[in-house]
Amino acid sequence: MLFRSDSGQAEFDEFVRSRAQALSRTAYLLTGDAHLAEDLLQQALLSAAKAWHRIEGHPEPYVRRILYTQNISWWRRRRFAETPLDTHEATTAAPETGDRELRLSLEQALAQLTLKQRTILVLRYFEDLTEAQTADMLGLHVGTVKSTGRKALDRLRTLAPHLEELIND
């Protein structure tokens, strides 16, 4: 039994219903693979369910931290070949053609980064964390976050020069 009460189960269920899509997007950005993102999110939600009675306040930061740390554990444990992003089916409404092409181009460029580089960029620019917060979240030194982020942005500029205006924003 994961929950101590029916109200705990109901609160968890409501949290999953309301935040699963946003958490899934983050997991996808972290992994670059729809199936790995599903696995990552399921693992994070299972861990959160087990600790639900101890979570104080809003549970989303707790679950997001699980996503980040679990993803780091995965890329530290095994270095595996990345799969192309062109097989990912978007779960949101189809954007305008130009936006869709830009998104696909960005996804393809992100897929060519290392998992560490992609994770740092997701935390810094998608999650809007500071360098210090990102370092704390990943258990790295701030200097490592800075240098890895800089190298990742440089690599994005090389891989997709047409994204320059997006990268500089």
Score class of each variant (00 low, 15 high):
I72F: 10
V145G: 04
A49W: 10
F12L: 07
V142G: 00
Y68E: 05
A44H: 08
R78E: 09
N168Y: 03
T91K: 10
A81G: 03
D13I: 06
L113G: 03
A109M: 07
E131Q: 11
S105K: 14
T130V: 08
W74H: 13
H58F: 13
Q42F: 12
I120R: 01
E96A: 05
I120D: 02
L106W: 03
L41G: 07
Q70M: 10
E38K: 15
L166R: 02
L36C: 02
A51F: 08
T130W: 11
F80A: 14
A27Q: 03
R25I: 01
E56P: 01
W52G: 10
H53C: 05
Q70E: 14
E131W: 04
D13W: 11
L102T: 08
D136W: 08
Q70D: 12
E11R: 12
L153G: 02
L110I: 00
L106V: 04
Q42V: 12
I120T: 02
Q9D: 09
T83D: 09
V145L: 05
E11D: 06
R77S: 14
A22E: 15
D86F: 09
I55C: 11
R118Y: 01
V122L: 06
L29F: 11
A109G: 06
S7G: 03
A49I: 06
G139R: 08
S73D: 12
T158N: 00
H141L: 05
E14V: 08
S5K: 09
L23P: 07
L123H: 03
L123Q: 15
R64T: 07
Q42K: 15
R25W: 12
L2Y: 13
A27L: 10
A49N: 05
Y125P: 01
R65S: 15
A34R: 04
P61K: 06
T134S: 14
L41D: 10
L46D: 13
H88R: 04
A27R: 07
S105W: 07
R78D: 10
S73R: 14
F3R: 08
S5L: 06
T87K: 11
T26A: 14
M1D: 06
H88W: 06
S5N: 06
S105R: 14
W74I: 07
Y62F: 15
L30R: 11
R118F: 01
L104S: 08
F15L: 10
S7A: 12
G143E: 04
D169P: 00
I55A: 04
T130D: 13
A81L: 12
Q112F: 00
K116H: 02
L115D: 14
N168F: 01
A132R: 09
K50R: 15
D154M: 01
L104W: 14
D86A: 02
V63A: 15
